[in-house]
Simulated scan of single mutants.
Amino acid sequence: MDWQAGAIFRPIRSGNAFEETVERILAAVKLGVFGYGDRLPAERELAARLGISRETLREALRSLQAAGCVEPRRGRYGGTFVTYRPPAPDLGELRRAVRDMGGELEDALTYRLVLETGAAEQAARRTLSEEQRDYLADRLAALEAADPDDYRRLDSRFHLAIAELTGSPSLAAGVAQSRMRLNDLLNAIPFLERNIEHSAHQHRAMVDAILSGDVSGARRATEEHLEGTAALLRGFLG
């Protein structure tokens, strides 16, 4: 299973196994860990990861199928495949949502800044394996090659990859949860060519700092990037 999926598909501890299973699968899809047409992990593996029965997992998948988010396919290459496509953002509706959030938006932006700058620092401190270094480089390459329709999904995967490389499942889960709080708003930011070019330089600086063990550089590049994103959110949705 993808490292990023491990940040979301962690054991469920509450008595609401069905509801939390639905939530976790939707989070993985909305965060871009699994995109349209991707196959979810096998039932046996996913149930074990979540610490639930296969019957509970099947109930959750049936409900998501009824909602049009996944579909089962039979045969040698069968399994459960993602059919969810994010709706086109309605800026008017999102502005109303931001007003309803009140101070929660600034709280979410501050929380994200603290978590992700800390994650970049910790990733830079670690001695990463060649596999981990290649994984981060691959996530960056995929993002740099993304077309506008897939950019936000791959941007999410890039940021989650850094959190995964910290070696802290709790921190990785926190970054994923933080991203979910802002996901619809981030997806509503228009695809601005100048901003994408600027972000590409910032993403590259983040990766270069992490891979070279430059702790302060990793923090500085990440902070600059997140502050730029926050400025766009405030501009378009404030």
Rank of each mutant, 00 (worst) to 15 (best):
M1E: 14
D2S: 12
W3G: 12
G6N: 04
I8G: 08
P11G: 02
P11W: 00
S14L: 03
N16F: 13
E20D: 04
T21K: 03
R24I: 05
A27N: 07
K30F: 01
G32Q: 11
F34V: 07
F34P: 14
G35C: 10
G35M: 03
Y36R: 10
Y36L: 15
G37P: 12
D38C: 07
R39M: 06
A42H: 13
E43G: 14
R49I: 10
R54F: 08
E55H: 15
L61M: 13
L64Q: 03
P72A: 07
R74V: 06
G78M: 11
G79R: 12
F81N: 13
V82T: 02
P86R: 09
A88M: 00
G92W: 02
G92Q: 11
L94F: 01
R95N: 01
G102I: 02
L105P: 05
L105K: 13
E106A: 00
E106T: 06
Y111V: 14
R112Y: 02
V114I: 13
L115V: 10
A119S: 13
A120R: 06
A120D: 04
Q122P: 06
A123I: 07
A124G: 03
T127Y: 10
Q132T: 09
R133W: 00
Y135K: 05
A137D: 11
D138Q: 11
R139H: 06
L140T: 12
E144R: 04
E144N: 11
A146H: 03
D149M: 02
D155Y: 00
R157N: 14
L160I: 06
A161G: 02
A163E: 15
E164Y: 00
S168C: 04
L171V: 10
G174Q: 09
V175K: 06
V175G: 03
L182S: 11
L182W: 00
N183F: 02
D184K: 08
L186C: 06
L186K: 14
N187H: 04
N187C: 05
I189S: 08
H201Q: 12
H201I: 08
H201D: 15
R204A: 11
A205F: 09
D208S: 10
A209Y: 02
A209D: 14
L211F: 00
V215A: 05
T222C: 11
T222D: 10
E227H: 09
E227S: 12
G228V: 05
T229P: 05
A230N: 04
L232F: 08
F236A: 15
